[in-house]
Amino acid sequence: MAPDMAAPVSPRRAAPARGGDGIAAGRAARPPGGRRRARGWLYVLPALAVYLGFAIWPALNTLRLSFLTWDGILPPSWAGLENYVKIFQDQALYEAVLHSLVLIVFFSLIPVAAGLLMTGLLLGKVRRGMTFFRVVFFLPQVLPLVAVGITWRWLYSEDGVVNQLLGLAGLGSFTRAWLGDYHLALIALGLIGTWTMSGLCMMLFLAGAQKIDPSLYEAASLEGAGSYRQFRHVTLPGVRKEITIAGVITTIAALASFDLVFVTTNGGPAGQTNVPALLVYRLAFNEGDIGGASALAVLLTVIVVAIVSTIRYVTRDKS
């Protein structure tokens, strides 16, 4: 398997080198090891400083702010758990979390399935034009989500392309302003996510599948396995890790989605597409409740970590 082949190689090569070094400098007791470690930290330092300064410190600060009452200007005051209590009492939060769980289906489950399907169809069969397919399917990932959102808002509008196509197909009675439909807006929004995420999944799976030893396919076909069985027993296990990664990335995109929702529906109609990140934004910037917004952001992080951990646990390599 690709991952198994890759994993032991580099440490094994590194180990004797380090050992040799140790023997050569053995007489000088242990200090070089310590110095080397210090030098190692030196290399890590720039990245670490950026990471600490722009990821860890803001995160810790958010945690701190979540226990304060603060409007952003006046001196903050201690609030204890008040912000959390208030958030848990707000019905809007539960609806927003529920909506983002629905979005997981569209941002994660369907794209992973679609990515696998496209990988199965493209792998080993398409000799020419592979780059074309990759570019086309990966394009949504390159576009800024705000541009994607505005474009889809037009596609979905009353006289947009979606409705024109429905009209041409004789389904004129189904036309509507999709993002304005009380019951269908969330699904319409989710499908935009499907469109952006499927290409990403396909790229990940194609990259993973190309590492699979071709002899496995040969062996399988000699045993009389058809396309489906080759996919099921060779490709699928070969891209297990990529599936996990795709699952994690897309699930985070669903749970923490903001920009797409902000520009397409802004939570509407009537709160039917509210998502937690949107509520964080409103609390912080419309209501000036930094403490409440931080508490909600912390809670959202906990939800994201919990769900992502579950995915990783479920898809772990049992061997």
């Binding site: 920009d259 990140a277 959202l300 994201v304």
Partner: peptide
């Protein structure tokens, strides 16, 4: 974005 979000209230 996830990291950004953590920072929404903070950055």
């Amino acid at each position: 974005w996830h990291a950004t979000l953590l920072a929404v209230g903070t950055a």
